[in-house]
């Protein structure tokens, strides 16, 4: 994968059942963060696998003052990639049980 300087990980163990899951976004390149959040490295949030849209969440982060508008796309993509992986793992687990 391309290095975006933004990593998204699970902030909790995925039990495979809950639609809503805690994710943690790590910012390796602090220049991406705005103003008072420059010293921040991690942003934890809850993501609903059924209802939430990664790009909407990244836009909310921009509106909350964490990121520059120009980075919304990178952040959204990082969340999208992680969410896709979580969903893929869940599907694989579900099919192995069957």
């Amino acid at each position: 994968a391309e290095d975006t300087g933004v990593r998204v990980e699970l902030a909790e163990e995925d039990d495979g059942k809950k639609a809503s899951i805690a994710l943690k976004l790590w910012v390796e390149d602090h220049k991406k963060l705005k103003g008072k959040y420059k010293e921040t490295g991690a942003i934890e949030f809850t993501f609903d696998l059924e209802k939430d849209v990664p790009e909407v969440v990244s836009q909310e982060m921009v509106e909350s003052g964490f990121f520059h508008e120009s980075d919304a796309k990178i952040v959204g993509k990082s969340i999208r990639d992680r969410v896709a992986l979580i969903k893929w793992r869940r599907e694989r687990t579900a099919s192995s049980i069957v």
């Binding site: 790590w26 910012v27 921040t40 991690a42 942003i43 949030f45 809850t46 909310e60 509106e63 909350s64």
Partner: peptide, 27 residues
Amino acid sequence: SATAQVVHSAGRKFIVSPVPESRLKEH
């Protein structure tokens, strides 16, 4: 604590915290 909580108008809660030095050196 350096941890802060930001709530977006849409209702989503963001918990922000600094990354420990050790964590950054991992990559």
